[in-house]
Structure formats: structure tokens, C-alpha cells
Simulated scan of single mutants.
Amino acid sequence: METHSHLRRPAYRLVAEHLRRRAERGEYAVGDKLPTEDQLQQSFGVSRHTIRQAVGHLVEEGMVQRVQGSGTYLIGHETNTGRYQRAIGSLDEIMSWPGTTTRLLEPFRRGVSEPAIARDLGTDIADVRCALVQRCYNHVPFALTRHYMASSLADKVIERGEWETDSTIIQSAERLLPDGIVSATQNIHATQADEAESELIGCSVGDAVLLIERLYHDAGGRAVEFTTSRLNPRRYSYRMDLRRHR
């Protein structure tokens, strides 16, 4: 494979694309352990360095995760079923949505009326700003998230153009913080889609949807962002791998 210079593409990218296609065909499921470096080296007939570059490329894309002492696992990939699937095992994976895009339906605005959210963020209710974001997979919407932040941070995210449509608001906000995001508290509920949100996530009024609430904290223990997300379970699923530390 390394001798195919006429393709004008690095060998590691060809290997990465082959692995990606295998996942798309269902040969690897989300949460599965990929073959070892030796096995991949024999399969593709390339050097160990090329295999490591290919896997590293997939790590950067958010498709796989290396677990020290265990191996490399598939954590997210596009499927031909129309459902976005991924595995979650860390805060970094919660903050990242590889293979999806977003639409800002409502920019950060004043007028938030939830006192409990202001208390969670440690600020006055008049200082809270809210934005509404729709997340899509293959241009098909499956999630709707309300993002709540203090006005000082929300204004910086928008004014500096830090937020990109293939990223997340919390990733963009983190670049503006003196301390990084280190923890999040999450609650998951089942609820029913109302008329306003059902069309925006591709379901019918009254359908069961996932409601996920998260509160992110920085290294100093300060609350940074509170989110409420409603997801269409027919278009989204995730697997969580839990390990015991010994």
C-alpha cells in the first residue's frame, strides 16, 4: 500500500479510510475493540509506523479511542441506517460530536426565566443568556440543545467567532477560559416531544425522547455552562463503557 504513490495520498490515510469503511459496513460496532497493531500491519501490508499514524488520525477525528493497556476502541462513526451512534467513556467524548454539524436557531439572548439554572451557574437570573442549537447527522436533525451561560462568557463566544458549526459551544467556550473543563454532572430522563420541538428533531408530537441535562465545571470548580438536550432515540444512540479502576 505504501508503494501506491500514484494515488497521491499518504498510506496512513488510505488505511484510515479502509478502517472507517469497515465501521460503516458494520464490521466494527461502536464499543468494539479494533485489531492490534500487529494484526493491522499484517492485514494492510504496511509498516507499524503507518498503522500508528492511521489510528492517530482516527483518534483526532473522534472515531476511536486508545485505552492504555487495553487497546483501541470504536467510539463513534457514521452508519448507513441514518442513526448517529457513538460510545461515551470520558468527558472529552461527551464534549465532542464527530461527524455531525449544528445550526444556531436562536443566538444567545436575555430573558431566561429559570431561577434554578441561574443558581446552578452561580449568577443572577438577569445575567444568564440562552442559545438554541440544532444538531444534525447527514443533514438530518436529531438533537435540540439549549445552552445557558453567564453573559460575559456567552458574549465572548459570539463576538470572537469562536464557535464553529462542526464543534460544540462548550469546546469553543473552553478556549476562552483560564482553566479547562474538568467535570460535568449529567441527568438523563425520558420525556415526550412537544409541538415546538418535535419537527426540529424529526419526530411526532408525544413521541418519547431523551432529555439530557448537563452542568459543566472548570478546574477551579466554577460552573461554566448548563445544557438541556432533547434527542430523537430513533436517530441517536450511544453506548457507555464502564471500567473499574484497580
Results as ranks from 00 to 15, higher is better:
G89N: 12
R129S: 06
D155P: 00
Q39R: 15
I75C: 02
L105N: 09
H139W: 07
T227F: 01
T100W: 07
F142E: 00
A196H: 06
V133H: 01
P233G: 03
Q65C: 13
C130Q: 07
Q53I: 02
H4N: 15
L19G: 05
L200A: 09
T72R: 03
G31R: 00
A184Y: 01
E199Q: 11
E159N: 04
E106F: 09
Y137C: 06
L211P: 00
R25F: 08
S113W: 08
R243G: 02
A196P: 01
A196S: 09
F108H: 05
G111P: 06
H139S: 15
S152N: 09
L210G: 08
A29D: 07
E197I: 14
T227A: 08
L242F: 10
S204N: 09
Y84H: 14
E174A: 10
L153V: 03
V224N: 00
Y137G: 12
L40S: 07
G202E: 03
G202K: 07
Q171F: 00
V15W: 08
I125K: 11
R22M: 10
M63Y: 09
E61H: 12
L34H: 05
R48I: 13
H57Y: 15
D38C: 02
S172P: 04
T123I: 15
A87R: 03
G69V: 10
S151N: 14
E114D: 14
I201A: 01
T227Q: 10
L74R: 01
V64Q: 04
L211E: 05
E162S: 03
Y73G: 03
E60H: 14
S237Y: 04
L58D: 04
L132V: 06
E24N: 09
A29K: 11
S96A: 12
Y137K: 05
V157A: 00
A29L: 09
I51N: 06
L211C: 10
L200C: 05
E159H: 04
L177W: 02
M149T: 04
A29H: 08
G69D: 11
A190R: 08
Q41M: 13
S43G: 06
Q65P: 00
I201R: 00
D120E: 14
R146I: 05
L210F: 05
V59E: 14
G45Q: 12
L176N: 08
E159G: 00
G76T: 04
I88H: 05
V59W: 02
A196Y: 10
D38H: 10
T102N: 14
Q85H: 02
S167G: 13
Q134W: 04
E162G: 06
L132E: 08
G202F: 06
G69P: 04
T191M: 01
H77L: 07
Q171D: 08
G71A: 05
A118N: 11
E162N: 01
S90A: 13
A87F: 00
E114V: 13
N138M: 12
L74V: 15
S204L: 09
T79D: 07
I88F: 01
A150N: 13
K33G: 03
S183I: 06
I158R: 09
A54K: 10
Q68N: 12
T36H: 06
L231M: 12
R86M: 05
S152Y: 04
S96T: 12
V133R: 03
G221T: 09
V67S: 09
R22G: 07
I51L: 15
G82E: 12
C203H: 01
Y84C: 03
T36V: 04
D179I: 02
G221D: 09
S5G: 12
R135C: 01
C136E: 15
A173Q: 03
T191S: 03
S167T: 11
L200Y: 04
R119K: 15
